[in-house]
Each structure stands twice: as structure tokens, then as C-alpha cells.
Design a protein around this nucleic acid. Sequence first.
DNA 1: TGCCTAAATGCAAGTATTTGCATTTAATTA
DNA 2: TAATTAAATGCAAATACTTGCATTTAGGCA
Lengths: 147, 147
Amino acid sequence: MIKNKDLEKELVQKGYKITRQRKIILDTFARLKKRWITAQELYEIVIEKNPKINFSTVYRNLDILTRISILCKIDKGQGVYYYSLNNKDHHHHLICKLCGKTKSIHFCPLEYIDTENFQDFTIVEHKLEIYGYCKECMKDRLVSSGK
Amino acid sequence: MIKNKDLEKELVQKGYKITRQRKIILDTFARLKKRWITAQELYEIVIEKNPKINFSTVYRNLDILTRISILCKIDKGQGVYYYSLNNKDHHHHLICKLCGKTKSIHFCPLEYIDTENFQDFTIVEHKLEIYGYCKECMKDRLVSSGK
DNA sequence: TGCCTAAATGCAAGTATTTGCATTTAATTA
DNA sequence: TAATTAAATGCAAATACTTGCATTTAGGCA
């Protein structure tokens, strides 16, 4: 189970300050566990505890927390980003194009290439997102198309 | 060499109409060859030829052309999307985090998994972007950090 | 050629996210 | 504990992109 105190410790270690706003944000993600939420949803939750927190503060913190890998940010293809606590093992995502459900996958393409000096690039980051239809949505598609 | 007439033919085949606006957009990409541009840059070029073309038309066409794989859309991590003509062979990109230079790579992670029914998902799309430093930028980084 | 209709466009307003700058505050040090 | 200061926040405006709806138009057909 992920504790917000541990997340705070990690922030401090990396030289960030623990503000009231940050505490609330971290606490929210700790409660949500692995559920994905948008910046808007986070803002609505957070504002209950501190009505004067600003939207730009939410965005700025999402950005920082994503950069230092406390959060994971994905594009489900709906024009909005989704965020959730990052399980620390390196992974990528399968994303259902219909219901938005995601599944972590532990397959990583970089295991298949030499990252040190690949095509004259020194690789430091990468992003693999695989889109498709989950079992349930696939079933619905087959039914509705009469197959 | 890519001809705008060929691109128009492809659009017609797929059931899209050839409008004045679309002609200008396709023509622009054909001229630019493989150069990456943003929606804003495209708009500025396009408006020279038809001053009353609308921004939403530009965005809508970029979207359609990307969907049908005439264009390729990438996130260079600068908060803006870049578009260019898609070379038809399936590929992904290496992107320099400093100068934004890109390089097509012909390595594809899906060659390593069974896409038909991977973890109960039926895969239909995917996106792999690899970020790093190109040779030149890496050299500059080493110099500036005194190594 | 003129008529017809679905597709495309223009416009204006909306949403999602970012940024610059003045103010506040966490956390270090005296 | 008070002073200090760099980091974080709030606010307002900017940017990037999307959408709904009324109008226009490409392209098929009489």
C-alpha cells in the first residue's frame, strides 16, 4: 500500500518543498491507489479540502510529479491526459480505445536495442502506448456489427 | 518524390472531397517534403495562398490526414504537435530532447508480441517514441558540463 | 448544365493546458 | 525565534486545440 508520507519523503529527498497544496495532492493520489484521473477531476477533489487552491498549481504539480516518476501520465486518446500513481517497476500500457480501461504491460521495447548509442542518439526516455479493444468491448463490437 | 496529385488521389479513394483548402494543405506538405511543422506554421503558410482559410479547417484536416496515415504526428515534448508527410513504411521516431531533430527507426515493438490477442486486448494501434540526445547535442552537453 | 445532399468549412465559443509576474511561504541559518 | 531567500502559489492572460452549429460547396445524378 502506498503511503502519502513516503511520497512526501521522496519529494524532500529530491529537493522539493512540502506545501499544503502538495500534501493534499499526494494524499489524494495515495487514496485513489491506481485509479486514473484527469487534472480536472483532481482539482475537484482537492478543492474540497482547500477551496482556494489554483488550477495552475494543480497542473504544475502534476507536471513535477510526473517528471520525477511519482505519477504516470497517459494519453487515452480522449483529448485529456490521465494521471495515476506510478508503480515503480518499469512498464507500459495497453489502452482500450472504447472504454478507456488500461492494463500495465511489462514488455519493454528498449530491451531489444542497445540504448547507449542507438543510431547516434543517447537514449534517455521513451514512451510506448498500445491501443486496442479490451475483451468486453471487443465482444460488444462483434455483437453490434452483427458478426 | 511525393506529388500532391498522388495524395489527392488517395483522399478521393478513401471517400474524401478535394476542397480548395485541402489542395493547399496537401501542396504545402508535398513541397516541405519530410520537414516537420506545427499547425501554426502550416496555417501561416497556407494563409498566404488563401487568406480566409480557418484555423479549425487546418486542425480538422491535420487530424484526418493523420488518421489515414498521409501525415505523421509526433509530440517532441515541446507542448505542440509536429506533422510531416508519412513515409509509408511502418516506423517510429527517435527525437532529440534538445534540438528536436528526429530520425525514423524501423524497429517496431509489435514484432515481438502476438497482436491478435495480447493480454485479452485486440491491438489496433500503437505509438513508440524514443527521446534522447543526438550526437551533436550530446557533444555540447559534455562540453558545457565540463566533462 | 442545374439540382441535390452529405461532407467540409467558417465562425465563435469552449476546453485543456501553460506561462509571466507579483506575492506568499517552507525551510535553512543566524 | 526572527530574518532570509529560493521555491511555490495565485491570478490573469496566453496558447493549443476542439466543438457545435449555421452556411457553403464538391461531386454525383437527372
